[in-house]
């Protein structure tokens, strides 16, 4: 009886593991194929049936693909935007979220509902009037339309940080207040050190968003020297439509920073996503 149960338990585990890895393989194939194609010489890329291993791998593809267009420049442009957005979100969202979490004021709950409602507002709805506004301000072909709004808070991160702040026991702050600390001191010395994991999540999500964003840069950055990586890659794709080896090499380099970040900060990624779905 016990042996049978053990046997079925083990059988079950083997089956589940096989299923898990079968599905995992499906998820991996596009990435492996991207890597394989990026290393193929041109005459091997259109081979049918397709072969997995480039013989021999042609590493020059990377150097060539990345120098045909100024990808280094695109890289810097994207990094600058991402960095400014991260600074903007960290500064604004912490302060706003702390107020929503801890300070009592008439109208607070109603405003929080407004905040949650704006979470559901799709970007395309305000796309046209925002363009008109930024055009009037003379901000087209600058990073300001992408970066400036970040300094005025972003609903999702305010929500995320507020949830986190509410989870921190109030005793710490009370003690500090008795010692005469003011709000900014409490925020800086007590809340922020405790909220580091949540702040990391905000920074990482903002980075990922800025790195992948396409529509907003497409609208506001029309001069090639201002292009971000996604714009550069799209430009590259329309110019070298059939050179798939170069395209795969460029794509891979474009996503590499996000992949590296993901491996180092998987926990922050996963927890940030989960917050919205469960706490509410």
């Amino acid at each position: 009886m016990i042996r049978a149960a053990f046997a079925t338990g083990r059988l079950r585990r083997v089956l589940v593991t096989a299923l898990l890895w079968g599905v995992a393989l499906l998820f991996l194939v596009p990435m492996l194929w991207m890597l394989s194609s990026s290393l193929k010489p041109n005459y091997q890329i259109f081979e049918t049936p397709p072969r997995w291993l480039p013989r021999p791998p042609r590493w020059e593809n990377y150097r060539e693909a990345l120098t045909i267009l100024p990808f280094a420049r695109y890289f810097i442009n994207t990094a600058v935007i991402a960095l400014l957005m991260i600074v903007g979100h960290l500064l604004s969202c912490t302060l706003i979220a702390y107020a929503f979490a801890r300070l009592r004021a008439p109208g607070r709950e109603a405003l929080f509902v407004v905040l949650l409602a704006t979470l559901m507002l799709p970007y395309p709805v305000t796309m046209v009037p925002l363009y008109v506004l930024f055009n009037r301000l003379g901000w087209i072909n600058t990073v300001l339309p992408l970066v400036a709004p970040a300094f005025f808070g972003a609903a999702f991160y305010i929500f995320l940080l507020r949830q986190f702040f509410r989870g921190i026991p109030a005793d710490f702050e009370d003690a500090a207040r008795i010692d005469g600390a003011n709000l900014l001191q409490i925020l800086w010395r007590i809340m922020l050190p405790l909220a580091l994991p949540a702040l990391a999540t905000v920074a990482i999500f903002t980075f990922q968003y800025a790195w992948n964003d396409f529509l907003a840069p497409l609208i506001y950055l029309q001069r090639p020297e201002l292009y971000t990586l996604t714009l550069g890659l799209q430009f590259f794709r329309t110019t070298y439509t059939t050179n798939w080896a170069y395209l795969m090499a460029a794509s891979l380099v474009t996503v590499l920073p996000v992949i590296i970040l993901f491996f180092f900060a998987q926990k922050a990624f996963v927890e940030g996503i989960a917050v919205g779905g469960v706490n509410k």
Partner: peptide, 30 residues
């Protein structure tokens, strides 16, 4: 396995699409 499942979703953007255009290539695609 969890990492593998989750990884593609952080790659959204143009690169994500370009890879699939290549996978979907009518004659030489995987």
């Amino acid at each position: 396995v969890r990492t593998i499942y989750y990884l593609p979703s952080v790659l959204s953007g143009v690169a994500f699409v370009v890879v699939w255009m290549w996978l979907f290539h009518p004659t030489a695609g995987l």
